[in-house]
Structure formats: structure tokens, C-alpha cells
């Protein structure tokens, strides 16, 4: 009985009372005035109308209006919360420098992982962010101390039975040994990432707090690398900015709205570029106007950024090829642009036409358009532009046109290569 309240059905609020029906006035009267307050009498608008009331009709109308009122409140709340979400999207910038000091030809950013500074190679062509981790079974020599999970209170192990571990398969293409655990689910999720140049990292998947510029994020999933080998120089690890669910971009979607940008600086003068997260238009204040091209969807290549290559020009001469209009990957970690053979042939032919009179040199590896430029101090190079869908142009930086195989300029090659066949 104590858990219930009794409603007298003959005494509910809808029962009209004679006193109200007979009321001649619905104006509120002042009920008195205190020193700091005034009291007004409150009456129900239906009950004081004085007219004969069809209660069934009134009830239906009241419920209808009530519903409209709730919908209105919901719309207002939705509008307010969506504004709040937009406001919570933040921006941050990190200096982006050459990795030459760390003996890598890649670009480096420094972030705080578990409160410790880590120098990471920036890579839009892979997904998992990882660092070399103690205790390490086989690590390359890095500058600075290895990340040590035992001294971090924010380090958390990712277990085999978690969805994060399953997502890793999609991102890396490697299942790790989790599949062979025969139901032993409380084991850590091991990962393996292999790169195109033969470099690799393997270790345990974990989560940790990370600070990107002035933005701190909790529980970032990363790889605690116990066995790492390859061309990473003295960097602490790698920042994966690909598109799968384990990439830094996907994990920070709510904070940065899936937007990041970079400006890669010249390596020679020690200049610093920026890696920026979030859609802060002030980042582009020193840029020319931004031209956009759609990211092409390919369900089989979800990790990659694919653009539609629609044209190219050498020294202002537009090239013709039936192979234009196809997807091309864009990657911050690849230096030599690979083109379908027919497009490469057109590039090579036009470049040689405009860059004539310089002594040629034998090819090197995949590069077959090479020169000996030892007897020249300054050379004039035709401008190369790559054009993407929507007429977005990327003008190749002058230092990216050639690959200096030999530093004395006796072997300098055009930094473009041909794929083996058109649809490779």
C-alpha cells in the first residue's frame, strides 16, 4: 500500500466545478502584496470560460496541442545540442618538420603519449599509430627513450575479444595470433603492420592518452611495438592517418570532425610546416584559394585516399591520354608518383621535349628518365601540374620534380615512374 497512490477517478482535474462554471470573470486578481513580492491568482483557462464545454472535444484538442508542444520542445533541444556538438569540435596544430635529424627522409611530428614526448612519422598511407614499446624484443635505435607502459597510469590493454581488436584486421590485413586462442579471450590483442618497403612493426594493441598540440584525448588506440624493423630512422614510431576505424582520423572524428591538413616544408632550410587537425580556416590564411576534389569511394580500398586523376600538364602543355579519369592514391609517405604507362609515356615525352639539351644518364631502379647535371649550377625545369576532378590542381614543388640519386648531381632522375600495366 505504501508503494501506491490512490487516484480518485471522480475527483480528477477534469471534473468541472460549479464555482468555475459560474465564474463571470477570468481575470486574475491580485492576492496581495508583500515587501518584495506580488501574488496573482491562477485559473485554468478552460474551466473559467463560462461557456458550456464539450469535454471530449476539449480533451482531444488538448492532447493534440500537448503533442505539438512536445515536438516543439524536442526540436529546440535538438537544435541546441547540435550547436553544442559543433562547438565541441576543436582545432589544433602541430609543427611538422623534416626527419633528417632523426635520419629519416620522412616528416615528423612530436606528440605526447602518456605524458611523454614521442616523435612520429606522419603517414596518410597507413592506419595504425604505433610507438616502440618496453620491454622490446627487437627494436631499432631511436632517439630518446622508448615508451614504457609500466609507468603510465593511463595505459590500457586491448583484449582479443574486443571489437577494437576485430577492427584491426580490417585496418592491417593481419589477424595476429588472436584467432588461434581457442576461446582464451583475456589475452592482449597482438597486431602486425607491414609496409610496402619491407618495414614492419608488431606488438600489442593498447590505449593511452595522447596530446596533439594543446588538445588532449583519452583512450587513443595505438600499437605498443615490441618488434620493429625498417626505415624509421630514430623516430619513436608512426602516426597513421589513413581512413580505417583504427586510424587517428577516425578515432578523433568527434573532436576534429574528420578533417586534417598538412603543409610539408622544404627539408633543406630546417623550416617547419604544420599538421593541423580540425576545420580551422585560419590555418589556410597564408594559402592561395583552396580547390577541392572528391575523395573517390572504393569499398575494397577503404583505408586509402583515392582521387580521380583527370589530367596533367608540363610547362603549360596539357597532356592527352585515355587513361585519365581513373583513381590515384594520395599518400604523404610515398615520394615517387606512379602513373599508368600511357600517362607516364605522355609525361616523359613532353618533359624530354621541354627539358632538352641536358646530358642523359642511365636509369636507376624504377626511374628511367635520368640526367647528369654535374656541370650545371642552375637549371630551368618545366612546371608539372597534376589535375584532379573538379579542376583541382597540384603543382609539383620544384624539389619534387627530380630525385637526386647521387648528391653530386651526376645521376638525377625524374621522380615519376610507370606502373607495369594500365590497370595495375
Amino acid at each position: 500500500v505504501d508503494q501506491k497512490k490512490i487516484l480518485s477517478v471522480h475527483n480528477n482535474i477534469w471534473s468541472p466545478k460549479k464555482s468555475y462554471e459560474a465564474s463571470s470573470s477570468c481575470f486574475s486578481r491580485s492576492l496581495g502584496k508583500g515587501r518584495d513580492s506580488t501574488a496573482l491568482e491562477m485559473k485554468h483557462r478552460e474551466l473559467c470560460s463560462g461557456k458550456t464545454i464539450d469535454w471530449g472535444k476539449k480533451m482531444r484538442r488538448a492532447l493534440l496541442l500537448d503533442n505539438i508542444r512536445v515536438q516543439s520542445l524536442q526540436l529546440r533541444i535538438k537544435a541546441m545540442t547540435s550547436r553544442t556538438t559543433e562547438q565541441s569540435v576543436s582545432e589544433t596544430q602541430i609543427p611538422l618538420t623534416s626527419g633528417i635529424k632523426l635520419e629519416t627522409l620522412n616528416y615528423i611530428v612530436t606528440v605526447e603519449l602518456g605524458g611523454k614526448n614521442m616523435s612520429l612519422i606522419v603517414d596518410t598511407g597507413s592506419d595504425l599509430t604505433w610507438v616502440q614499446c618496453q620491454p622490446c624484443r627487437s627494436c631499432y635505435n631511436q632517439q630518446g627513450p622508448l615508451y614504457d607502459p609500466s609507468v603510465s597510469s593511463s595505459y590500457k590493454t586491448v583484449f582479443c575479444n574486443s571489437s577494437t581488436c576485430q577492427d584491426l584486421v580490417a585496418a592491417t590485413g593481419n589477424s595476429g595470433p588472436c584467432g588461434g586462442n581457442n576461446g582464451v579471450v583475456k589475452t592482449s590483442c597482438e597486431y602486425v603492420v607491414s609496409y610496402g618497403d619491407g618495414s614492419y612493426t608488431r606488438g600489442d594493441l593498447a590505449s593511452e592518452s595522447i596530446k596533439l598540440g594543446d588538445t588532449k584525448l583519452e583512450n587513443l588506440v595505438f600499437g605498443c611495438g615490441r618488434n620493429n624493423k625498417g626505415l624509421f630512422g630514430g623516430a619513436s614510431g608512426l602516426m597513421g592517418l589513413g581512413r580505417s576505424s583504427v586510424s587517428l582520423v577516425s578515432q578523433t572524428l568527434k573532436t576534429f570532425n574528420g578533417v586534417f591538413s598538412y603543409c610539408l616544408p622544404s627539408l633543406e632550410d630546417g623550416a617547419s610546416g604544420t599538421l593541423s587537425f580540425g576545420n580551422d580556416s585560419s590555418v589556410y590564411k597564408n594559402s592561395t584559394s583552396v580547390s577541392y576534389t572528391p575523395l573517390v569511394q572504393n569499398p575494397q580500398l577503404r583505408s586509402f585516399y583515392i582521387l580521380n586523376l583527370t589530367g596533367a600538364s608540363i610547362g603549360g602543355v596539357e597532356l592527352k591520354s585515355s587513361s585519365f579519369g581513373r583513381g590515384i592514391l594520395i599518400d604523404s609517405g610515398t615520394v615517387i608518383t606512379r602513373l599508368p604507362p600511357s600517362i607516364y609515356k605522355a609525361v616523359k615525352t613532353e618533359f624530354l621535349k621541354q627539358f632538352s639539351g641536358f646530358p642523359s644518364a642511365p636509369g636507376y631502379s624504377i626511374l628511367d628518365t635520368c640526367f647528369n647535371l654535374t656541370s650545371y649550377e642552375d637549371i630551368s625545369i618545366p612546371t608539372i601540374k597534376i589535375i584532379f576532378e573538379g579542376n583541382a590542381e597540384l603543382e609539383i614543388d620544384v624539389t619534387g620534380v627530380f630525385y637526386f640519386v647521387k648528391p653530386d648531381a651526376s645521376l638525377v632522375c625524374l621522380a615519376f615512374a610507370s606502373l607495369s600495366y594500365e590497370n595495375e
Binding site: 620522412n106 596518410t124 610496402g196 586534417f260 603543409c263 590542381e393 597540384l394
Partner: peptide
């Protein structure tokens, strides 16, 4: 040739917008 930074994209602001499924390019002296 290992994992080397892409010199060809130097001094460009390259904007990856995964929400709007687009990539922006602008010249910028870094």
C-alpha cells in the same frame, strides 16, 4: 627508396576532409 616524405606535395596545403569526402589543395609557402 623507402618510406620517404612526399617532396612533390611540399609547399602545398593538402586538406583531407573525410566528413565531406573531399580533398583540398592550395599553394602555401610553409
Amino acid at each position: 627508396v623507402g618510406i620517404i616524405g612526399n617532396y612533390q606535395q611540399k609547399n602545398q596545403r593538402v586538406i583531407y576532409d573525410t566528413t565531406q569526402e573531399r580533398l583540398g589543395i592550395a599553394g602555401e609557402n610553409c
